[in-house]
Computed example of a mutant assay.
Amino acid sequence: MHLIITDAWLAKSRAIYLSGTKLVLAGFLAAFALMVVAAGLYHWVFLKGAREGWPVIGSLVKLVVKDEFEQRDRFMRENLDVMAKRLGEMQAKMMQLEALGERVSGLAGVNPGEIRSTMGSGGALVGSRSLTMDELQATLADLDRLTDQRVDLMTVMESRLFDQKIKKLMVPTQPPVAGGVLGSSFGWRIDPLNGRSALHTGLDFPSEPGTSILAAAGGIVVTQEYHPAYGNMVEIDHGNDLITRYAHASRVLVKKGDLIKRGQKIAEVGTTGRSTGPHLHFEVLVQGVFQDPQKFLMAGQKMPSGQLASAATPNQPAQAAQLPRPK
Rank of each mutant, 00 (worst) to 15 (best):
T6Q: 08
A8I: 13
W9A: 12
Y17K: 09
S19E: 14
G20A: 15
A30T: 15
A30Y: 10
M35L: 13
A39N: 04
G40V: 11
L41Y: 11
H43Q: 12
W44Q: 07
W44H: 09
G53L: 08
I57H: 01
V61L: 13
E68N: 12
E70Y: 15
Q71D: 11
M76I: 09
N79L: 04
V82Q: 03
V82Y: 02
A92G: 06
M94W: 03
E98V: 07
E102W: 09
E102N: 14
R103Q: 09
V104E: 03
A108D: 05
N111F: 05
R116D: 08
S128M: 06
L131Y: 08
L136E: 01
R150L: 08
D152Q: 11
L153N: 05
K167N: 12
L169A: 14
Q174W: 01
P175S: 06
P176W: 04
R189D: 04
H200T: 03
P206N: 00
S207T: 06
G210W: 10
A217T: 03
Y226S: 01
P228S: 12
M233K: 04
M233G: 00
E235P: 00
I236Y: 05
G239S: 06
L242I: 12
T244L: 06
R245C: 05
Y246T: 07
A249D: 00
V252Q: 00
K256T: 15
K261F: 06
T272G: 03
T276F: 01
H279M: 02
F282R: 00
Q287L: 08
Q294A: 09
L297H: 02
M298A: 15
G300K: 04
K302A: 14
P304E: 08
Q307L: 14
S310A: 15
T313V: 13
P314S: 15
P317V: 07
R325A: 10
